[in-house]
Design a protein around this nucleic acid. Sequence first.
DNA 1: TTATCATGGTCCATTTACGAATCAAAAGGT
DNA 2: ACCTTTTGATTCGTAAATGGACCATGATAA
Lengths: 112, 112
Amino acid sequence: MPKTVTRTYSRYSREAISLLGGLIRTARKERKLSAQELADRAGVSRGLLQRIEKGDLKCSIGVVFEVATIVGVNLFDAEKTTLTKHLRQTEDKLTLLPKSVRKPAKAVDDDF
Amino acid sequence: MPKTVTRTYSRYSREAISLLGGLIRTARKERKLSAQELADRAGVSRGLLQRIEKGDLKCSIGVVFEVATIVGVNLFDAEKTTLTKHLRQTEDKLTLLPKSVRKPAKAVDDDF
DNA sequence: TTATCATGGTCCATTTACGAATCAAAAGGT
DNA sequence: ACCTTTTGATTCGTAAATGGACCATGATAA
């Protein structure tokens, strides 16, 4: 018998993704797009779009973001700061941090 | 021969997800977690975490959000307004909108 | 009311993502 | 310098996601 993978998700993750799906659905209707139309524009099946709008945790993030972008729901509001700028900043920050994370071997002498 | 699905993504989607991965990686290192440790906590393999941090568009959104949540990267900052509140608001908005989207059959007389 | 279209759900075939194991290389502590 | 551990990158088998077709129901325009 095949073993089934059961993932656990935090309440926050579930709610956040559910909210995202709701925002997408709302935005779609406000723009008067049928599910099929939006699905076509995003290059996905209508069934998948349904799951996205329902907040299905197992949809690929690329597809979800793509659909969201099409109807104008942006996670990172690129108002003041552009996304690319953020990207660079993140990279910069990473070069400052140690490249590999490592625990001290034993107890250090700051333990009293 | 099996036909291969090739998706197209907008620049925004790619950059946003890439940024998200970078934020996760930065947060992980700041918290001095090894990739293996974070992967364990999230219940995913180290390989998958690598792809997430790299900004792989094909990872499931649930897993990405879960990892992000663990290291403290929140998409919707639940500061002032809680997520649940937003959820309710979205639902309310949906009930106001027409339940199905439909184009008018012919030309309406508001075209002059 | 009626005809039309959007939506929701299910089933199946196929593609794909994911976990596990492995290896090489780089990095950091001592 | 040495040794340990993190990281990056493969490969492969299996479980899961996705598309497509289908049907039933619901909603809306005429």
